[in-house]
């Protein structure tokens, strides 16, 4: 069996359509993860009961497989009367999973802000919300941008497990094509290359950002 370029030309539109879904899931999932992760990180510095609950949730999410979490949301939400499309469930699951990882990233950034900054803000009797938005976060977030970027790339590479709930991303489309034609080499090779051409430059970009952040 050899590489068939005509077959490649036939399936490429479907694969690119899958790529569109993969990118949408990654962007929306990352948006959820970036916002929710920050909320978790701030809550982890809150009063004891909140802190403990958020901490436990984050540890739990990080210690269990994303795929099972995806199934969990997909099958359990409808029982509580919440019926969402597979892609939406996928975005929520990806967002929640990576929010747990991002909260750790933000936490490290927040802890790296010197104590004196908190004390100065308190001395100026800034309200709590201003301490966060005006003093702490503007110093914490820039230095964790590379780590957040790496998590976006990781999420991009994990979106294919949404095929478990029927999302037709790159791999979903590749599988459909492969299962109808029984030609797998082309579709899975192209799927892999599509991931590589997007994630490798992104990784280089993050590494460059990393050097710049370390340099400052």
């Amino acid at each position: 069996m050899t590489w068939d370029w005509n077959y490649v030309a036939d399936v490429l539109p479907a694969l690119l359509d899958g790529l569109r879904i993969t990118v949408i899931a990654t962007l929306l999932g990352s948006l959820v993860a970036l916002v929710l992760g920050l909320v978790f990180a701030v809550l982890m510095r809150g009063p004891a009961p909140v802190r403990v609950v958020v901490r436990a949730l984050v540890e739990f999410v990080r210690s269990t497989p994303l795929l099972v979490q995806v199934f969990f949301l997909f099958f359990v939400l409808p029982q509580f009367g919440v019926t969402l499309g597979a892609l939406v469930v996928g975005v929520i699951a990806l967002g929640l999973h990576y929010a747990a990882y991002n909260s750790e990233v933000y936490r490290a950034g927040i802890e790296a802000v010197p104590r004196g900054q908190w004390e100065a803000a308190t001395a100026l009797s800034l309200p709590r919300s201003r301490v966060w938005t005006g003093v702490v976060l503007p110093q914490a977030i820039p230095r964790v941008l590379p780590a957040l970027g790496n998590n976006v790339i990781s999420m991009f590479k994990e979106t294919p497990l949404l095929i478990g709930i029927g999302v037709l991303d790159i791999v979903g489309q590749a599988r459909e094509a492969g299962n109808t034609t029984f030609r797998y080499v082309e579709v899975y090779t192209i799927a892999g290359l599509l991931f590589l051409v997007l994630s490798y430059p992104a990784a280089l970009l993050v590494r460059r950002l990393e050097r710049r952040v370390v340099g400052t």
């Binding site: 590479k157 979106t159 790159i170 791999v171 590749a174 599988r175 797998y184 090779t189 892999g192 991931f195």
Partner: peptide, 13 residues
Amino acid sequence: GTSEVVQLFWIFF
């Protein structure tokens, strides 16, 4: 740089 699911399907199929 490539996705683990893709690698799995590539090796399996």
